[in-house]
Design a protein around this nucleic acid. Structure first.
Lengths: 213, 213
DNA sequence: AATAAATAGGTAAAATAATATCGATAAAAA
DNA sequence: TTTTTATCGATATTATTTTACCTATTTATT
């Protein structure tokens, strides 16, 4: 196990490339060079070439570049956008509701098939066509639907216990929006969407500029 | 310019440390060792020590570790949690509303002092004590309040134009929730909270596990 | 008081990631 | 047809990040 052929850094860049490529495609381009992508995104063209080489076996033509449609297909295929994974969402508060309405997941190959909360006033409601159930039914739901991924948007204090429950039920991938360092056993992956971390980077840069002017 | 003493990787870990340290503090500990932090977070203890060295001048004691209260203070100080920056939020849709209700920003030293949207039905409303104004007033507001940071939660199609406006008004740090690769001039920083990127990492890992079992 | 154990903090090494360089090749231009 | 140019793809180099190692020091133990 532990086959690691692709770095997180590359994985993070792939969706960025995709957005760029779609934009170029919609403006009528048929081919694109690594240099053009790099310039658009302020990256190094060698890096772009290497990233592409990881996910795409189709080779580019000298003097022309890569065929846009093929490249888009290859990246989307690699990222699993074309083969949808089912997932559940836990925590239908303000953020959870917003995420349920979010069309992105679908585009990124994640289909939310059920939402869960402790607030019984929500039970039976649907958001964006997704039914909201009691967390009491969570384990059963995950097992029955053979889910492997979950989106966690519960309050801080509940995050770890819900996480434990998810893991016990068979979830191995958690997209975590709660500001908590989740503890999970080997073989389970947590990906934090950490606003604090993003802010840390941003405000440090801004602070540096403000202090030096 | 371009003084880079601290890596993004370290900056990302600092809020993670903070959460861990607060947890330890609330469970009554007074001192903490780099080894203890590392074990809790599944990191390397040397990395933890180095990260601490960057942000904290107070030295730890051998055999004991670092004083928790001092360490927490130093990190929070470094990240600017103790010295609040004012910011505005643009786009009061579902996500924007959720962000306005979010207590995190305040904790992280970001005070949202105004929200903006194009939907005139929202004008004059407040969420979490924050007034919602017309985007027509955005530039003036930013200039008058001397804002340097903004949270962008508008729709994809509006992101670049709003971004341009922000930059023109004097904003140099943008926390971007829109799935768009924003183009900004030198000296302006965009930090993406990119769900697609997070999902890319997570689903690739999950896929690898599922394929190999 | 002497010894043992744990840990900071610095330095060295290793691993990883980013960037530069260069030959080959296909398209465009002369 | 020949030359020029832009780009790929591979390799080499550089920079960055992470990890390992070692010494000094402080506390606890014998």
């Amino acid at each position: 196990m532990d086959i690691k052929l692709i770095s997180n850094a590359t994985l993070k860049r792939l969706p960025v490339y995709l957005r760029c490529l779609h934009e170029m495609a919609s403006s009528g381009e048929e081919y694109v060079s690594s240099v053009a992508i790099a310039e658009n995104l302020n990256l190094n063209s060698v890096q772009v070439k290497k990233d592409i080489a990881v996910v795409s076996s189709s080779s580019g033509k000298p003097k022309v570049g890569f065929k846009l449609s093929t490249l888009i297909h290859d990246i989307e295929n690699f990222l699993g956008y074309t083969k949808t994974q089912k997932a559940c969402l836990i925590g239908v508060g303000k953020l959870g509701s917003a995420l349920l309405s979010y069309k992105g997941f679908e585009k990124y190959g994640l289909q939310i098939v059920g939402a869960f909360d402790v607030n019984e006033q929500l039970f039976g409601n649907t958001i964006n066509g997704i039914s909201i159930y009691s967390t009491a039914e969570l384990t059963e739901f995950v097992k029955e639907n053979q889910l492997y991924m979950a989106v966690l948007a519960v309050r801080e204090k509940d995050a770890q216990s819900v996480c434990d429950e998810l893991v016990k039920a068979g979830i191995i991938g958690i997209l975590n929006f709660a500001p908590v360092n989740l503890q999970v056993p080997q073989g389970v992956f947590v990906q934090d969407v950490d606003i604090a971390a993003s802010l840390a980077i941003l405000s440090t840069k801004v602070k540096t500029v403000l202090e030096n002017k």
